[in-house]
């Protein structure tokens, strides 16, 4: 074996032995340390009902299989999914119209931007009065929270479709609908996914806050109720489900981007 080859082999095995500084291991160590710190601080100074890792682990299985909890999670996540779907369809339609038709842009841009900047929490009491103290308000909040970010991104995407693509489509005599679905939609997909990602985060927050306010069954209400009845460990399982949903959505969009938009940022 050549000297260089032997050296490379040695380097590989050394890297394997020192795997303690690899990102995965460091991430795990940091996680364990943070949990230990949390556990220690709560045990030393906090009342017994305060949530701590071992307590959460103890109740986790029971909570996650509790039919009431499952129903609550289903109600919240279902409302988020439905609201996001409404926002995606309507927001994309409005955004594309703004991005491609100048008069629509001129009439709507200012209002869409303003409503995007309006804190959803601030108008929640108004929405509750309009839609009632029930699931409709939650759905309205979810749509309000996600619609404008999706519309604004769709508008940006439709506006920035490279002129050369449109020219090619025209030269090959594409009809308006073909232009929309074969050029404008695929060219704006990266923007649509960015808007959906942003909108999904806001939708999740919106659903939980709506439940806090109007007290309808759901994950947010579950967390609120258990916090107020000193069952913090149980409340925290609800938080974990929300975190997992958010992270899961991120992972899905990232996978979609890698899978279907490999051309993006490479052209």
């Amino acid at each position: 074996m050549s000297e260089a080859g032997a050296g490379a082999l040695q380097a590989t095995s050394r890297r394997r032995r020192l795997a303690i500084d690899s990102p995965v291991v460091l991430k795990a160590i940091a996680g364990v340390l943070l949990l230990a710190l949390w556990e220690g601080v709560v045990r030393a100074w906090a009342p017994a009902y305060v949530a701590r890792p071992t307590g959460i682990a103890r109740v986790f299985a029971a909570v996650i299989t509790d039919p009431q909890f499952v129903a609550a999670a289903g109600a919240t996540l279902g409302a988020v999914a439905l609201g996001l779907t409404i926002s995606l369809v309507a927001g994309t339609a409005v955004g594309f119209a703004m991005g491609r038709i100048a008069p629509v842009e001129w009439s709507l841009r200012y209002y869409v931007n303003s409503l995007f900047a309006t804190p959803m929490v601030a108008i929640l009491p108004l929405l509750a009065l309009w839609f009632g103290y029930n699931g409709d308000t939650r759905l309205a909040v979810v749509v309000f929270a996600s619609f404008f970010s999706i519309a604004i991104n769709a508008a940006d995407g439709a506006r920035s479709v490279p002129a050369e693509f449109l020219e090619v489509a025209r030269a090959f005599r594409a009809r308006p609908l073909g232009m929309l679905f074969e050029v404008i939609v695929p060219a704006s997909l990266p923007y649509l996914i960015a808007g959906l990602r942003l909108g999904a985060g806001r939708a999740l927050v919106g659903a939980v806050v709506a439940e806090y306010f109007v007290s309808i069954p759901g994950l947010g209400y579950y967390i609120l109720y258990n916090s107020r009845t000193f069952r913090h460990d149980e409340a925290f399982v609800g938080v974990l489900v929300l975190v997992t949903t958010g992270v899961g959505f991120e992972a899905i969009t990232r996978w979609l981007t890698r899978r279907f938009l490999p051309w993006h940022r490479r052209t």
Binding site: E164, F165, E167, V168, A171, F172, A187, L189, H264, T267
Partner: peptide
């Protein structure tokens, strides 16, 4: 009639 473009004009997707 068909055109070949300087910018190629291929759809990246």
């Amino acid at each position: 009639v068909a055109m070949v473009f300087q910018h190629f004009g291929l759809f990246p997707w």
